[in-house]
Design a protein around this nucleic acid. Structure first.
Lengths: 224, 224
DNA sequence: GCACGTTGTCATGAAACCGTCATATACCTG
DNA sequence: CAGGTATATGACGGTTTCATGACAACGTGC
């Protein structure tokens, strides 16, 4: 999860934004439509998303709402329109900042940094993935419960990380299929099976889970 | 910790900003100098701070750095200067947003909301709806009454959320059928049954409901 | 090629849940 | 107070949802 995603239909502007951002040291990539942007963000989430308001097909506002529904990613609108109305509407839809074209790259870059800093300032107090006696080290690919290291398969590990990234939040089977398996559609039972296997390994008594709990009708969550 | 602090030396502008913000529903107050602003923020921290860049004595940039050193409060700069240079410098100093005067109050208000939302999104990953002793965490799929967690079925949970989204407002059975069950037509008695079951779980005495009250002839509502 | 670990599919049983209905109770109107 | 209407609630069968064990397909290293 890194870099900036630029959703903008005008090829020239998109390209120049991407290049300028790369100049500023960001890993940037582009999408010409909202559909493509949303897809990319699902497949390989960027750290920040830039959105134009006037897009063919799904428009910018709808795109923002959709992004917001799926994710917490900071969203910056870059638009030619400087109407207060548009600005307010975009922010209400879930955008975090709004710049009017033509944008000064230095300003854009500074605003991206500010946004990122704000995110960290608040997110950092709980940096490690610790759930009571369950400790997850994503970079190291290690998991331990009650002091004992446990060996997980890749799928189990990814599933656990996905759940751990949203402590206490219920994730639906659909969401998990999308994020862990990158399936757009698929049999939801698959999730059950892997949750079961994961439980065998991390829960003391898998019939009364302490960490990985089922929320009937909704999905699964990992709780502290 | 509530409200907005406006640090601005021009009396007319400061006053009009404070009044405009109050109009928008914020508790706002002013400081004419950076010194006073910093003092106020120490004594009684505001939720967000607005700073002008050109201030007598300690200037805006220094004021931002000082605030940032002491506190994590979101800072919005409001300045007459629209130089990219100033914008970048202010953001680098620690500001979260930068608006150029004259500001549209609606935009300012929307940006404050966006900033606040972002703060919450990261600090409290699971926002809750609170009705006295009844706490609903939609994201977590959790409900607790008087400190005790209660287990709801999916239908009960959706029903409760629907009611909670409109605190104090009466929702007709028809509306509830449409929104919770996605039935266009259907037996309204169905709603009664589920309201009853929900009451058994969340009310102390289901014959004299404290939260989920019947409005005879109209429907049901959830009150604080 | 073989052994092994991993993965996805399927079947099964148990438990939870849902909608319907019947009955009881509360409330309003005249 | 009587009669009618709106609401509350308990019971029950059909359905959905979930946990789990078995198994075949697949890939990888030896």
């Amino acid at each position: 999860m890194t870099g900036v995603l630029v959703i903008e239909d005008d090829d020239r502007i998109r390209l120049s934004l991407v290049l300028a951002l790369e100049d500023e040291g960001y890993a940037a990539r582009g999408a010409a439509t909202a559909e493509d942007g949303l897809l990319q963000q699902r497949r390989d989430p960027a750290e920040t998303v830039l959105v134009d308001l006037m897009l063919p097909g799904i428009d910018g506002f709808e795109c923002i709402r959709q992004l917001r529904r799926e994710d917490d990613v900071p969203i910056v609108v870059v638009s030619a329109r400087d109407d207060t109305h548009d600005i307010v509407a975009a922010l209400e839809a879930g955008a975090d900042d709004y710049l009017v074209k033509p944008v000064a790259v230095k300003e854009l870059s500074a605003r991206l940094r500010a946004l990122r800093r704000r995110g960290r300032a608040l997110a950092d107090p709980v940096p490690s993935l610790v759930f009571g006696d369950l400790v997850i080290r994503p970079e190291a690919g290690e998991v331990s419960v009650r002091g004992e290291p446990v060996a997980l398969t890749r799928t189990e590990f990814r599933l656990l990380c996905e759940l751990a990234e949203h402590p206490g939040r219920v994730l639906s089977r659909q969401q998990l299929l999308r994020r862990v398996w990158e399936y757009e559609v698929g049999d939801e039972r698959l999730v059950d099976v892997h949750v079961g296997r994961l439980r065998q390994k991390i829960e003391e008594d898998s019939s009364t889970p302490r960490y990985l709990v089922t929320v009937r009708g909704l999905g699964y969550k990992l709780q502290r």
